[in-house]
Design a protein around this nucleic acid. Sequence first.
DNA 1: AAACTGTAGATTGTCGACAATTTACTTGAC
DNA 2: GTCAAGTAAATTGTCGACAATCTACAGTTT
Lengths: 228, 228
Amino acid sequence: MTETQPTSGFQQLDREGLVQRVAKILSRAIVSGKLAPGARLSESVVARELGVSRAPVREAARLLESSGLVISEPNRGFFVRQVSAKALNDLYGLRLAIEIAVVERLAQNWNDEIDETLTAQVAELHRVAAEETDMFTQVEADMQFHRLMCNGSDNPKFLQVFEQIAIETEFSIMLIGRLYDDPTRIAETHEPILAALRTHDTDAAVKAIRYHISEAQRIVIDQFRLLE
Amino acid sequence: MTETQPTSGFQQLDREGLVQRVAKILSRAIVSGKLAPGARLSESVVARELGVSRAPVREAARLLESSGLVISEPNRGFFVRQVSAKALNDLYGLRLAIEIAVVERLAQNWNDEIDETLTAQVAELHRVAAEETDMFTQVEADMQFHRLMCNGSDNPKFLQVFEQIAIETEFSIMLIGRLYDDPTRIAETHEPILAALRTHDTDAAVKAIRYHISEAQRIVIDQFRLLE
DNA sequence: AAACTGTAGATTGTCGACAATTTACTTGAC
DNA sequence: GTCAAGTAAATTGTCGACAATCTACAGTTT
């Protein structure tokens, strides 16, 4: 429906604006830990380093502000956000609320397409666990499973909030510096959720997701407190 | 704790930036319906009308974008968001998920201060209903009750998401143009929630909020469909 | 007539410069 | 030595101008 001209196999060339590119670079720098929490994000410095003017940098920073990676203080500039154990804990609280609603819907609107997608993602989880890939890949694969669930809920709002949560969560996990648990075990703990959804058992699915998120929360928070 | 200089009763004079002021003006214009959904938000026109340069207008528009009032199309500018019945329905779905989590917490962490605050707000609801104030005031008072609940949940994340929801909801209700229900009845339907919370009855509170939100959802959506 | 091409006007995207504000440092009084 | 006031450098806030892009309309071809 979107493809109007399937004549030649030309690939859509990069039409994303300067602002988006700057935002991506900055967000990578923050999530990967190159910019420590609390660090000042100087417009002039970033602009000079990237060889652009300050205007796109400012807009990119505003974008990052709305995804919660940086905060702006009037007349003082942008700073990489400080995360506290409490804030991280609260984040998981929000995530639980969202994901409970999502699995409730999924259990009712279950179909083969979603089944296939989620099953494949659990397989992917096992694959990256076995191959012992880097932490970023592991965390991303985990998040992707939950993202797919939100996407399958048929409510874009859940996905929208989840994306925000995902960015902050990854940010915090990267801060911890190492994976919080055995990757294989993480892969396995997704299976009860899937099993419950397959049988349209709403209560079991809610219980499974509640357990899953709470476990992740406990482990991450424990690890995080060690840094404070 | 925030007051460091309680010497004289001076009021904090307007230190909020130009961006915030522009954002507030635009947001008022959109929510009040002066700018119809789908309308283009021309930077140059707005800048000229307000007597400022385009830079602050752009930033304000970005701010509004993150609160969901406008959307930006690259190289084409900003447009007032179109809302569909489905989107509005989804919004209430998200709101329900959040508020369920909020009342669960409130039922457990109940204290006199919150009790007092919420009771006062229900009284306020009855007051504005009796005085037959304008719709905006009515809706705002309703939202304030739920905002106070989120605020009392001791999880700023819930409040943050709620604020986003509140803006979009008010926007949609203003679109409908008239109040969706009898104000007095609205005021009354908040009481079961409060009653359940007072007795720390989590299940009853969840049931009450579920009923409350679902009713509002049903009424608003029905009204909204008439516009489409 | 329908569809493509080209051009002119308008709008957004980006930039460098100046004004306003904050920050760091120095100076001076107690 | 400590604290306050004053000053200079650095940084953000805002602006007007130019470049890149889009939109609409006219002209041309089939």
